[in-house]
Design a protein around this nucleic acid. Structure first.
Lengths: 230, 230
DNA sequence: TTCGCACGGACTGTCAACCATTTCCGGGGT
DNA sequence: ACCCCGGAAATGGTTGACAGTCCGTGCGAA
């Protein structure tokens, strides 16, 4: 028996559907959720739905006010900045640990990944792909190489999901692809040298740039929105 | 109207009771939880109990296997080490941010706090108090001074709760009180200088020492247990 | 007109009973 | 000794009901 089928509960699927709905904007930030309505829409009963909501509550995707209802978490540029700062701390540490433990094989895989990115960068339609799976893959592999279960689940799980809710597109998208690739290479080289300090510093710098860049982008968006309002 | 009374739901109280039961060991690690039994014991119905369980699941205090049941999270020295490593990353970052933003007033409060610790250290029965509220207070204030909501809630909430489940007693308890106090002072001085790098480094060093020390303590305990088994 | 207040609908919070499905355990039979 | 099968028990999910709270509406009074 190769594939051990693991039964998926309704709560799990509902949780994912809710999560997806929040991420793609079907449920707008701040929007109120009514249990009965949603339960009927999804064709389930209130029980599992409530349990799913509790989970997302714990992950800060939903906020509940007693006797009032549940709302989709409100976002703000400031909160995004805070989140990205936490990411700096966690991924920096992950990168440090990875530098101590990473194998030559894993380093080779990372290099190959970056090479493929370099090629895609030239393709006009490539940028989308780059962001979508490539960049995540890079950070994901490093988190995994840290061999710290908590760190990994936070980086690739909770944190990543939250960032998606914030509609955060890795700032590599916003004209930083070239710079990001260079930074990625710097990180990999530090990992290859098994240089914890260098690796952490490189990752921190990379994410700090991404964070600052994203804040600038947000500010520009707000400026544009304000200009349009006049 | 100062205190706006906010209604507490059954789920909230149940969550806290479960949490407390896990922390103080009434529910042993790895122990299985049966919904119906527990629901009857607590005098509630299965609904709210299940919702509370889902929450603690999200906080990794409980682990669920589909169709089998819920168990209290299993602990291991390795996981504790991983957790303390995450703490290093988060509190290090918090300390860095705090150094940039902390006010003279807050610095003065921290100094006063450490002075009171220094006095207590001499009192024989003081060690317990020192750990119980004092050490937490120190780290709590710094997390707060970081002015990063996510960081703070992680450090003083999720992370702290998990550590309590691991029965982790800040290693200041284990004969490190004196050294810890010195390290605390180093941290505060860096904060007073508004020196982010120094503050982060000092906090990281402090927590690294605590982590290593705790691992040593765990090893000793295991050695002792093994010796006793013979 | 405007403020205040009571009424009623709507929604959350909780409970209870019920059924389906799966797991677990023990008693067979081979 | 091993395997298989049946029943007990626990989880997973559904339904329906009801209490409590919140909120908007509309009426009445200043």
């Amino acid at each position: 028996m190769e594939t051990k089928i693991e039964p998926i509960s309704l709560v799990d699927t509902v949780t994912k559907r809710l999560e997806a709905a929040i991420i793609n904007g079907q449920l707008a930030p701040g929007e109120r959720i009514r249990e009965q309505v949603l339960a009927v829409e999804m064709g389930i009963s209130r029980g599992p739905l409530r349990e799913a909501i509790r989970r997302l509550e714990g992950r800060r995707l939903l906020e509940r006010t007693a006797n009032i209802g549940v709302r989709v978490a409100e976002l703000s540029p400031q909160k995004l900045d805070e989140l990205l700062t936490v990411r700096e701390a966690l991924e920096g540490m992950a990168c440090r640990l990875a530098a101590e433990r990473i194998s030559d094989d894993e380093v080779a895989q990372l290099r190959a990944l970056l090479d493929s990115h370099a090629e895609l960068k030239d393709v006009s339609s490539g940028a989308g792909y780059y962001q979508k799976s490539g960049d995540f893959d890079f950070h994901f592999r490093i988190a995994k190489a840290s061999e710290n279960g908590f760190l990994m689940s936070m980086i690739t799980g909770d944190l990543y999901d939250l960032l998606r809710v914030y509609r955060y597109r890795s700032s590599t998208m916003q004209g930083r692809a070239g710079a990001a690739l260079d930074e990625h290479r710097t990180i990999v080289e530090a990992l290859a040298r098994h240089d914890p300090d260098g690796a952490e510093a490189a990752m921190r710098k990379h994410l700090r740039n991404a964070r600052i860049h994203s804040q600038l982008a947000v500010q520009q968006m707000e400026m544009a929105a304000k200009a349009e309002a006049n």
